[in-house]
Structure formats: structure tokens, C-alpha cells
């Protein structure tokens, strides 16, 4: 059949639009919305979630995220610097740490550190926040170390040389010249890391939590158990989105701006 490439592209485009609209219409017409909202979005249950979902659950999610991020960032910086060291044992140690914590699922690390270590040593975690946040921070630091290292390596070598030629020691040159420039480069990926952490805190509840240290996901799950309805999980999902969407938009904006500045 003799049909030109541009015509074919045009017809394909029309077809995709037509199929999308048809699918949307079918969904509106054939899904039993009453049944669905009855099972997943009942207003009276939605209302019951407040204010505890903010004052307890979301608060705990934020606390776990911030502890995990702060710990991960400081440890990650140390491991990044070790990875870049000229001293080989430092490099080996950091590389081993990073591979181990990136290679094991967070749930397994949480269980090993949260339960395994206390059982093996008799030592107890001082509180439930530490029990959840420390394993989270250790795993986060492994990912962040690689992000930070990439950022430091993206700063031209001449910057370090210029700083050293002015008599700055290596740590001083790193601290005043290289790391401030690296930070600008890694703010977008670190923000992504923060979003991942918000979501990863939902795994902490495998450690078993008290009413006071419940995070958003656990709060939603417990709500499902007590109401025999999926609404609490839907609400929890929306609260997660309220936290993560602004951040992912921020990253997109920062990346657009960086791209524009690079031109």
C-alpha cells in the first residue's frame, strides 16, 4: 500500500488519541463507582483518620525520614571521601560498605539490625526511633556516598590544584573549594534520595511499633484492620503524595534551571 511516512505517522497519532479517549469513556461507564468508593473511599472513614494521621503518623514518617537523611548524609560524606582517598584501605573499606548495604534489601537490614543484633548481643536499642532510623540511615548513606562521590568528581581537577597551589591543605581545599561546588551539583539527586527515604520509612513498621511510633503506612494498615475497609490506606497514599509530589516537582524545576544555566 502506498502511504507516505508522514501520513502513517499522522494516522498513528490519531489512533492513539482515539484509543485513549475510548478507554477513558469505558472506565467512566462500566466501572461500578459506588461499589469502588464504598470499599476504598468512604467519607466517614476518611474523616476518622484525622487528626491522628497528621499528628502521629505523618509526624513519625517525617521524623524517620529526617533522621535517616541527616545520618545518611553525614555518613555518606565520610564514605565518599574515603572512596576518593589515596589510602587504599580506606577505599576498600568504603567500597565494601557501599556494596553490602546497597546489595541487601532494606527490610532485611532493618530486621538484622533491629532484631538480630539485640538478640545476638543482649544490647537493646535505646528507643524505637533509633531502632528504625539507624538502619535506614546506614542504607541511605551507602547510596548517598555514591551520589556525593560523583558530585565531587564532577568538580574540575583544576579547582583542587588551584586551592592547593595557594597553600591550602587537602581537607581545607575540599571543605572551602570542592565540596561547596559539589553540593550544588548533587542537590537534585539528593532531593530524589530524600523522596525515596520518605517512601522507605514505610518499611520500618516490620520491626513492630507502638502506637506512638507508627508511621503513615502502618497507620493506614492498622486502619484497614480496624475498619475492614481500604479507605485508610488510600488516605495514607494521598498524604505520601502530598509530601513527595512537591519535592519531585522541585527537582524537575532545579534540573530545568541547571540545564538552562549550562547553555
Amino acid at each position: 500500500m502506498a502511504i507516505s511516512k508522514r501520513k502513517r505517522a499522522m494516522y498513528t497519532r490519531y489512533a492513539v488519541y482515539a484509543i485513549s479517549i475510548a478507554a477513558l469513556v469505558a472506565m467512566v461507564l462500566f466501572v461500578d463507582w459506588g461499589k469502588l468508593s464504598n470499599a476504598m473511599f468512604r467519607w466517614n472513614i476518611v474523616k476518622e483518620q484525622f487528626p491522628d494521621i497528621f499528628t502521629k503518623a505523618a509526624k513519625n514518617t517525617v521524623i524517620f525520614t529526617i533522621l535517616g537523611f541527616a545520618g545518611g548524609l553525614s555518613l555518606g560524606l565520610i564514605f565518599a571521601l574515603m572512596r576518593l582517598s589515596t589510602i587504599r584501605p580506606y577505599r576498600w573499606l568504603a567500597a565494601t560498605y557501599i556494596e553490602i548495604f546497597r546489595g541487601i534489601p532494606l527490610v532485611v537490614t532493618l530486621l538484622i539490625l533491629g532484631f538480630g543484633i539485640p538478640i545476638a548481643t543482649g544490647w537493646q536499642w535505646p528507643n524505637a526511633y533509633m531502632q528504625g532510623a539507624v538502619p535506614l540511615a546506614l542504607v541511605a548513606s551507602a547510596y548517598m556516598a555514591e551520589t556525593i562521590r560523583a558530585g565531587i568528581e564532577a568538580v574540575p581537577k583544576g579547582q583542587m590544584e588551584a586551592a592547593r597551589s595557594l597553600g591550602m591543605s587537602y581537607p581545607r581545599a575540599m571543605g572551602t573549594i570542592v565540596i561547596p561546588q559539589a553540593l550544588r551539583i548533587i542537590v537534585p539527586p539528593l532531593t530524589n534520595e530524600f523522596v525515596l527515604l520518605i517512601k522507605d520509612t514505610s518499611l520500618i513498621s516490620v520491626l513492630g511499633v507502638t502506637d506512638a511510633t507508627k508511621d503513615l503506612a502502618r497507620f493506614g494498615r492498622d486502619g484497614v484492620n480496624s475498619t475492614a475497609n481500604a479507605t485508610p490506606l488510600m488516605v495514607a497514599g494521598l498524604v505520601y503524595l502530598a509530601m513527595t509530589l512537591p519535592l519531585t516537582q522541585l527537582v524537575a524545576w532545579m534540573e530545568r534551571r541547571a540545564k538552562a544555566a549550562g547553555k
Binding site: P156, E161, A162, S165
Partner: peptide, 27 residues
């Protein structure tokens, strides 16, 4: 020992004056 490089290697996150002052202050 002062050194001047082919690629200048000025610190891009600092003004000209800060470039000239940073090592005076820190070193």
C-alpha cells in the same frame, strides 16, 4: 610559590574579590 594555570581555575562560586581573599583569610 604563586601559580597561574592555563584554564585560570578561578573558584566559580566566589566573586573576583572573594577569589583573591579566600586564601589570605584561610591560609
Amino acid at each position: 610559590i604563586g601559580m597561574v594555570f592555563q584554564q585560570f581555575n578561578l573558584f566559580p562560586h566566589m566573586t573576583a574579590l572573594e577569589n583573591v581573599c579566600i586564601a589570605q583569610r584561610k591560609v
